[in-house]
Design a protein around this nucleic acid. Structure first.
Lengths: 193, 193
DNA sequence: CATTTGAATATTGTAACATTAATCAAATAT
DNA sequence: ATATTTGATTAATGTTACAATATTCAAATG
């Protein structure tokens, strides 16, 4: 009888599967959820995993109000100092970009798949889900598992998504297409420094 | 010693807690989810439970709102906040985009000269005067009395302003040119609606 | 007759488990 | 000598098990 050799393997540094090598690249946790929500949660996890959403954050409960001087670009000579009290036009970014903070959330964009809407890697888009999407709005939607920001259109009573760039073709939504509207994109911010 | 009487209860029809008497009024299931999604999922479950929201559908366009978008809503006050290990990210646009509000002002962009830097007509850029401009920075400058936003460059020891659009030519700064740096563009915001 | 008590039963969060997947060096094949 | 196979090792993943809690109801108690 041949002896079974099993001196392969053994305790070795770095052996075995690597932490974070799972589906989500991070630690997981079990949680109890109602049965009817399981499929929605799975869909959400799939979408956020597969696509270019970096993270989703909410508006802070207590939003700051910090209006600063705004110049139109046609500023004439005699450019007034921002410290000048005579400058009448002031702007607050929260006020300017957020209408309903309860219904607003932010999505940090990963990758360049939304570049056709002038939205680049690292940008944060502002999404209001309290707005009923109308034809012509820029919307955040998922189409067959891919997040995209496109202009909502309609064709033969079916939704159609128009890119803001002629390089890309419109996306027709038929009955075989997974399609969900996540909200209306009301703005975008970018940080250079 | 007193004998313990335990002839209370017993097998009785209808005894005990009722099925469906739980938080969600339906059967539950455990599922494994990434740790960073736990708080969002909890929030979503709380809200769909409290608001009795299923899928909101716009029959006309056959568009379905995914109920998970609801997690941008605030958790109602008084609702027991589970002690999450996960620190939830909340965003304040003023804090995110403005470092020194004393030295910051906004300029609304007209024209398409910065379109390659994804700064479009109508965008508002955020300018910090306290930052020392470096080569490569996008800056607000005045050249011969005209304000312009360009990328700062250098050519033969002289500053040069590069537009981010091939249609436009670089602006060379010589000794006869009035030139003043007003600040560094640290961010940009755009409003779609 | 109202209140208390405790067995019965479901919910709920978490631990435990079995299965699958990934990793790497020794063993084997070419 | 180099490539492939093998199997121990370790983590991920889905499910079950379990303990603690909550609810219900009739018997016991006052």
């Amino acid at each position: 009888m041949k002896p079974i050799k099993n001196n392969r393997g053994g305790v070795r540094l770095g052996a075995g599967r690597r932490p974070g090598s799972g589906l989500y690249g991070e630690e997981t946790k079990v949680m109890r959820v109602p049965r009817s929500s399981v499929s929605n949660i799975k869909k959400y996890l799939n979408l956020s995993r597969l696509n270019n959403i970096d993270n989703i954050s909410l508006a802070r409960d207590e939003i700051t109000y910090n209006p600063l001087v705004l110049f139109e670009h046609k500023v004439p000579a005699g450019f007034p100092s921002p410290a000048d009290d005579h400058v009448e036009k002031r702007l607050d970014l929260n006020e300017y970009l957020i209408k309903k903070s309860d219904a607003t959330f932010f999505v940090k964009i990963k990758g360049d798949s939304m570049i056709d809407a002038s939205i680049n890697d690292g940008d944060i888009v502002i999404i209001d889900r309290s707005i009923q999407a109308k034809i012509g709005d820029i919307v955040l939607a998922s189409v067959d598992g891919n997040f995209t920001i496109k202009t909502l259109s309609k064709h033969k009573l079916k939704p159609r998504l128009l890119p803001a760039n002629e390089k890309y073709k419109p996306i027709e939504i038929d009955d075989n297409t997974q399609f969900e509207l996540w909200g209306v994109v009301t703005g975008a911010v970018r940080k250079f420094k």
